[in-house]
Amino acid sequence: MVNVEEIRDFAAGLLERGEVKSVLGFRHGSASAFAEPCTLTEADDAASLVWDPTCLNNLALYLVKDRKQQAASKTPDTRPVGIVAKGCDSRAVGVLLQENYFKREDVVVIGISCEGTGVVDPKKLSNKLKGRTASRVTFDGADGISVSVYGDETETVIPAREVLADRCLECRAAAPALNNVVFGDSVEARDYNEPFHAAKEAENVSEDERWATWEHHFDRCLRCFACRAVCPMCYCPECVVDSTTFVVTLGTSAKEKANRIRWCERSANTSESAVYHLTRAIHLAGRCIDCGECERVCPVNIPLRLLNTKLEKEAFEMFEYQAGHDIEQASLLSSFRDEDPNSFIR
C-alpha cells in the first residue's frame, strides 16, 4: 500500500535540500471530493499532499507549463521540478523527454504505483450515484473504493472495477517505469480488462453506426479546447487547427499574419469540430500515453479517449510501439524500418 506520509517526507526532503525548486502533487480541492493539482515550493507545505483515487490529473502538463514560463522569463529558474506521477503520467514525462522538451535531469519523478486499482472515472461515479456528488472518495483495500455521498454522509464501498476509469482497467503499467523513486508495490497481474478493450469494443460496430456516433459527438463539441489545454502533449506554441492560439512575435510580418491558415473555422459545427478532433488524434498518434485527461475534462462527455487509444492500438499492433516507454527511442512518426512494406521516400 502507498503510504502518503512517505510521499510527503520525500517531497519535503527534496525541497529542504534544494534539489528541486518545486514539487507538483495533489491536494484536497476546495470544491468537492476530487483532488486538485498543487505546486509546493516549501518543505512545510508537503503535509498537504494527498494520494487517493481522485488524483486524476496528469501533472506532466505543469512541467510543460513551467518550461514555457522559463523560456519566456528573463531570469529563468532552471532548477529541477519534482512531480508526483502515476504510471501513465510517467510515460507522459517519457514522451516529453523523447521529444527533447526538457532533459532527464530537469525532472525528479516521484512515482506512485496504482497497484491493484487506479483512479476513478467521475462520470462512472456520477452514474453510480445517480447524479449526486461524492464528498469523499478513498481506497478501500486492494480492489475497493469507498465513497461518501454529498448530502448523505453514509459510506459505500464499491468494487473498484465498477468506477475505475477505463484506462485504469486497461492499464499495463500501473507502476511508473520512469522514476527517481516509486511508492507502492508494482502489481503485475491486474485482473481487469485487456489492453485496448474499449477501443476494440468500439471497432466491433458497423461503419455506419460508428459514423453516426461520432457525428453525434462532434456535433455536441463546445470547442472549449479543454481536451487540448489539459494534454501534456499538446504543447505546440500554435495549434494548427485553431485560431485561439497563435504565435505573434515582433518579427511576425503582416504577410505571415494575413496568410495564416485556417484549417478549421471557429464555428463549433460538426465538420469543423471533426477536423479539430481528428487532427488532434492524428497528431497524438504514437505520442498519446493514455492518461485519459482529454476525456475526463470534456464537459459534454465526448469519449475522446477512444480516438486516441485507437491510434495507440494501431501503433502497438503494427509497430510494437508504446509512447514514452523508452526515452532513447525515436518517435513513432519519425522512425521507419527498412523492412517497412511501403516505399518510404518516394
Binding site: N100, Y101, P237, S331
Partner: peptide, 15 residues
C-alpha cells in the same frame, strides 16, 4: 523558427 520546439522528429525522419 517560432513554431519549432526542437523535438527532433524531423531530424530522425529526414532520409
Amino acid at each position: 523558427d517560432p513554431w519549432c520546439t526542437g523535438c527532433e522528429m524531423c531530424v530522425d525522419a529526414c532520409p
